[in-house]
Design a protein around this nucleic acid. Structure first.
Length: 251
DNA sequence: AACCAGGACGTGA
DNA sequence: TCACGTCATGGT
């Protein structure tokens, strides 16, 4: 079978870094199989998560908190909340304004994000249907396209590709897309590249693809000039083991 | 000591 | 539609 350029890129990244185990959950250490558990809550090769509404909620809260910040800061904030109680809508709404802002202070923008968290939480409690539409999420304050797609992909397992700054820099650098394509064009191009896959395979691929791009982006696309020393540009020979994957985009 | 981080929003052209 | 300023802490 012939892979299109986006599928091919996905396979190469997967070979380079391996499955990333996104989205990390702070209580994943409590999962039944300790072999699949990593210290920071990542769960490589376990695509069953989330399996309850509280885990779903934590992913959404994390998606808001991580806007334009490092996830390490998000973990600090989540653990501050967990000192009060489990990360649930009830616990968060039970926090005073001062306490909430204090807890999420390390992620920055804590005034805005405290508001976003509260309005999101009220919506989450009362939401109907249980699986939201993309537009329903976009109507909420503080939820732009990337955060909405992150929630849909990782919390609700919907086949929505997440596009972030790294994604655009990488794809422009590899000349897979013209510069200034914009969020919706990049998203559509990637989703179309996987359009023949089954839904569950799309979800798995998109979950890994985005996480892999972030991993690769941190290494080669965080500082100008973008893409310097990127092995994906230097030559195909730098990418090892692309044929020896134990699974691929088709599952 | 600038620069950057797993963005979104409000404003003015 | 788009370019630009703002929001803010923490690590390198």
């Amino acid at each position: 079978m012939k892979l299109n350029p986006f599928e091919s890129l996905y396979i190469k990244l997967l070979a380079l870094y391996g499955p990333r185990g996104w989205w990390p959950l702070t209580d994943y250490a409590h999962q039944p199989d300790p072999l699949l558990t990593t210290a920071k809550g990542y769960h490589p090769l376990d695509y069953s998560l989330p399996n309850n509404d509280d885990q779903r909620y934590e992913i959404c809260i994390g998606a808001i908190l991580t806007q334009n910040t490092t996830f390490a800061s998000v973990v600090t904030a989540l653990q501050a909340i967990r000192r009060v109680g489990p990360i649930t809508p009830e616990v968060l709404m039970g926090l005073s304004d001062v306490a909430l802002k204090q807890a999420i202070r390390p992620v920055g923008y804590f005034n805005q994000k405290a508001d976003y968290l509260r309005s999101f939480t009220l919506w989450f409690i009362n939401r109907n249907p249980k699986i939201p539409t993309r537009n329903a999420l976009l109507d909420l304050r503080g939820l732009g396209p990337e955060t909405a797609d992150s929630m849909l992909l990782y919390a609700w397992k919907q086949p929505q590709m997440v596009v972030d700054a790294y994604t655009q820099r990488l794809l422009f650098s590899l000349k897979l897309l013209p510069e200034k394509s914009g969020y919706s064009n990049v998203k559509a191009a990637i989703e179309q590249a996987f359009s023949q896959s089954k839904t569950a395979d799309k979800v798995m691929a998109f979950q890994e693809f985005h996480a892999l791009i972030v991993e690769h982006g941190k290494l080669f696309y965080s500082r100008r000039p973008y893409g310097l020393n990127d092995p994906l540009i230097a030559g195909e020979d730098n990418v090892q083991n692309a044929d020896e994957l134990h699974f691929n985009a088709k599952g």
